[in-house]
Design a protein around this nucleic acid. Sequence first.
DNA 1: CATTTAACTTGCCATTTGGCAAGAAATCAC
DNA 2: GTGATTTCTTGCCAAATGGCAAGTTAAATG
Lengths: 193, 193
Amino acid sequence: MNKEKLRKYFQSVISMPDDKAFALTEDFEHFLLPRNTFLIEENKNIEKTYFLEIGYIRSFTLDNDGLEVTTNIYSAPCFVNDFSSFFKKLPAKQNFQTITNCEGWAMSLTNVEKYFHNSPEFREFGRLLVLNHYDLLNKRMLDMIKNSAENRYLNLLSEHPDIFQNVPLKIIASYLGITATSLSRIRKEIICS
Amino acid sequence: MNKEKLRKYFQSVISMPDDKAFALTEDFEHFLLPRNTFLIEENKNIEKTYFLEIGYIRSFTLDNDGLEVTTNIYSAPCFVNDFSSFFKKLPAKQNFQTITNCEGWAMSLTNVEKYFHNSPEFREFGRLLVLNHYDLLNKRMLDMIKNSAENRYLNLLSEHPDIFQNVPLKIIASYLGITATSLSRIRKEIICS
DNA sequence: CATTTAACTTGCCATTTGGCAAGAAATCAC
DNA sequence: GTGATTTCTTGCCAAATGGCAAGTTAAATG
């Protein structure tokens, strides 16, 4: 397994010659994790940043009653991290856990800092990653406000049908802001209409 | 009225000598707006970025039923903008409106781009502003998950008591994710216990 | 392949939250 | 200062959502 997809990902965010892409991805190390494995744990220090090449990962935290609430579902290819905590060098505010078996590339915080210091391209990449994730979080907030749970379900189904074949409905329900029970009823309602 | 607070704000985010701070704030222009004035309108292009020196501003959008949902309350001193749209040069995704009479400094997108191009300090400042707002949005999301409406109310009351003297409760309720009716009941419950 | 475990659906009922509207209180604007 | 407007509270009722638990289906594991 080589780093071609990782390099392509870098080049899709900011254009750069192949040799630059090779240089920036040099210190990433391969990872292979079974499902239900934690990558990052709430309140613990973040050791690495992850590029997910195959698989599904979720972030979640615990609500008032100690129940898990899924805040995001990551489908490859993408970078996965608690970025605001990572760049502020603070403990993670959420848990990140594999949903399926996952495979990809990871780099230590120490190395990230090295590249951040030495490479303008890497800095720019990191900056755009933060901007993109900020934008996604904003969109998600507005989606929650503007659409009913049923519409959020239908939108996710049409935009990310693959998720429904790889992620349990109870996690999707939680991500949509409802219980598995309610999602089940919504699905029934849609089928019967 | 001079730009001292604006300069100090820059210097509080990244340290810089006074002359740099003077240079970076040179093209900001004073604004004075009565309450209920729109600074930014949803789906329209963002013309300026705002530094709020006096007053209160809110961002809001419309939900499924056309009702206004307040997504943020800004209290001076702070920068106010739909940053992710601003930096991506996309139309605003939300409305920004003064709650009280407001006063501060604004700079056009054209000038922002000029400074972004010419000044490493300004770039760094913008980057940190995005990171901070991303972090705040993240915190707000987790706050919504982890705390009951009553606790969110109590937290806001203890951390920003000034807001309760300057912002109508119906806007605060909306920001807390509940209706004015529910907030009224929560307040009653707290007083009676 | 067989066994165990996890996921999904469904009915019943309790709880929460919201909509509406009226009245009281506070604030605004002239 | 006074009338007009907005804000806030409260009661009543409807609607939405969730908790629980049982039964069913699907998937993981060895």
